[in-house]
């Protein structure tokens, strides 16, 4: 498994850059993914998406459906893409430390 060193921390990641375990997530990881995803500034809205994703994952064991994410955050899908250019799966879930999306994606 490849690993990345960033801000004094070591993260194990898969070939798509998703973290190996939800439990190894930390603020340094958020900063690393921000750099990787080419996001200039992290604002409250980014944080809100991450908080909703992590809260939902802890309660339900799955990532929320896009419609649920939109409804709970109040952000339309278009705005989620403005915040996370790679989208809610490859961008936001990666930053929130959730497992890589599966299925016929």
């Amino acid at each position: 498994m490849p690993s990345v060193e960033f801000m004094g921390k070591t993260f194990n990641v898969d070939e798509d850059g998703f973290i190996d375990s939800y439990d190894n997530w930390c603020q340094e990881w958020v900063q690393w993914v921000k750099k990787e995803e080419g996001i200039d500034e992290l604002n409250d809205e980014h944080q809100k998406v991450i908080d909703v994703l992590r809260d939902y994952y802890e309660k339900n064991g799955i990532a929320p459906m896009v419609r649920v994410l939109s409804k709970v955050t109040g952000f339309k899908l278009k705005h989620i893409y403005e915040l996370f250019p790679s989208g809610p799966g490859k961008g936001a879930c990666k930053m929130a430390g959730l497992p890589k999306p599966t299925g016929c994606v």
């Binding site: 375990s21 339900n60 064991g61 990532a63 599966t102």
Partner: peptide
């Protein structure tokens, strides 16, 4: 548990 969303 690390790689999968078990309910899925």
């Amino acid at each position: 548990d690390k790689m999968c969303e078990i309910p899925l």
